[in-house]
Design a binder for these strands. Sequence first.
DNA 1: GTCTATAGCCTGATAGAC
DNA 2: GTCTATCAGGCTATAGAC
Lengths: 221, 221
Amino acid sequence: MGHLPGTQVAIPSDRRARRRQETIEEILDIAESVMTEAGVTGLSLSEVARRLGVQPPSIYKYFDSLMAVYDALFRRGQAAHLKVLAAAMEEQGPGLDALLAGVEASGQWCIAHAPLAQLLFWRPVPTFEPSAESMTPSAEMVHLQRRALADAVAAGQLGPGADSDEALYLVSIIVSGVIGQALANEPHLGWGEGRFTPLLPKLLDVLVALYPPRPATAGRR
Amino acid sequence: MGHLPGTQVAIPSDRRARRRQETIEEILDIAESVMTEAGVTGLSLSEVARRLGVQPPSIYKYFDSLMAVYDALFRRGQAAHLKVLAAAMEEQGPGLDALLAGVEASGQWCIAHAPLAQLLFWRPVPTFEPSAESMTPSAEMVHLQRRALADAVAAGQLGPGADSDEALYLVSIIVSGVIGQALANEPHLGWGEGRFTPLLPKLLDVLVALYPPRPATAGRR
DNA sequence: GTCTATAGCCTGATAGAC
DNA sequence: GTCTATCAGGCTATAGAC
């Protein structure tokens, strides 16, 4: 097959595709740094082109529109966030420990990728609606947390009420509350610094208070 | 009308001042509704002028710049929010009840004035820094909540650790978490509807779990 | 205080040569 | 895929007539 025209074309076309993918990633990297300086809504394709060293129309060879760039940022961000969340949960083992490790990793990622986190979880661009496909990692995240809650109940770390949507919403409120306050009031500080992010473990302890496990060994009552 | 020159000028100048103030308030009302439709960063003085029925340059007779409009919105919003918060707390009586009534009223106001709340508490406009004077109602809000916590401790509703900055931060994390999730995920729902805002009382109950009151020594009911 | 006119900037997006 | 050129429009803000 070596001298068939098809293969002769195939190899350089692979290279071209790879190079193209690299350019796409570079555009998204630059877009992220523009958002860091100008805010999520301050993203402009002209500015991206300027920093990439090309003319603005060239961007349109890679993305159909500004909203397409937002959608790619959303998709890439969602996937990256899910990856660190899942890795932290898996490393830590099941149940409550996995939940704690997951939200801690999630918080760290959000602080380190502030504008992306805002795009994902606060929706500051009114004209941007993420595509349905972009939302599948979000469903996966919910699934992981839901399973961790169920495991915690099964292991007797939490009461049966914790295996519920309500508990899931409580977790999301607590995590987004901590991160939101940190991003709004201490945007220059890292994870673990400042007045808010160190409070996350304490706040998650309240899950135990809200859904007290039945005493396995001799205890009160 | 009197024929003294002073009075002849004074009365119409009062009217003029009042009319001017009305126009300023109208501009801010319109600016708020523009933000409701276009997002906080979507505010444009041209659009405000269009809806007011004047040409864009006329706005500059009332505000020096776009940022001056943001600052006025911030100041007016801060004052309005403080007013409903303080009224709810005072009506309810001291201690934990005042705190609960206050955050409930605060949440209601934020949902009803979503873009203003975002401007006040999430800072989505990177180039806008509120003036120092605009921040004084915020300090007053902190003072009210801090006093409610102290009263709750004195009344034996909470343990002594609740009279602290930490407890204050926990309250702000919880409240902003509930409101932030509601605004991002259920922007069309009112207070008490949806998956998040009904959870606020339950989340504030955790203050009692985190700072348990001393059993018998103090705090008679 | 209102207007017209306009400066001077930015943007997203398209057409077409190379 | 890159470029030039351009469209079509937005914006903030100023100058000056009335």
